[in-house]
Amino acid sequence: MEISGNYNIIEIITVILGWSVIVFFAYRIYQKQIVKLKVWKIPLIILVGLISFSINLSMFDLIFKLPILPLGVWILYFVFKGKAEKWQTCRSFAWLGFGANFIFFASTLITILVHHVIYPKDELSVYISNVENASIINIHPSAKDRSLNIDSLLKQLDTMSQEAVYSDQWYQETYMNTESNKRNERFPYQVIGTSSRWGSGLQTLIYIEDDGKGILVSTPEKQLYFRSKASLIEGGE
């Protein structure tokens, strides 16, 4: 939407760094070669070398690909079977391609670690910044005619306390002691017009509790729940 957008700046940097490392190694290999490979063939060999059989590792709520078998290197080996000199000039680049898988693996790990340091995942201000144009919309009929108190939100952004998400309790409370379909939603407001901190690339759905003192942040990975002392909404009645 806006130009600043919401890109994961850490990821962009590590991907560029990763490719730079590959280019650097390719250059070193090229320099050392006595019989040189044609330059345009080098990226091709590296790309084929990238092909690999990998296993999926699950860490930090994410899935990583850990390369095991260098399929691309084997393919090239068979292609150049019987052409020993040609294989000699290609071999290092093919293995570099396979090695690139580990460089990407490492860069993903670095991305996550650095991201955690720069954008602490338990701070509300990482998920909510640019509060100036924020407002709320009603997403359930139990929401009342209220508006967001931006000053109150700004003041309490850093002091709100994180609490556990009691999902089953909230769910059951909603259905207890209510006749038929006269139910209230615990989080009937959605905060709009905010963005997560610049460069974090975090996507969020932000809900406000019916008493105006709770914020539920929903990201693709998890949910966080914060409570404030004073109400974040005002008006009505």
Partner: peptide, 20 residues
């Protein structure tokens, strides 16, 4: 629809959205 999930101790609550 409203819903909740608890997977390996991590809780997740979906508020009901109903706009008419």
């Amino acid at each position: 629809d409203r819903g909740y999930q608890i997977t390996r101790g991590i809780q997740h609550y979906n508020p009901k959205v109903q706009m008419g």
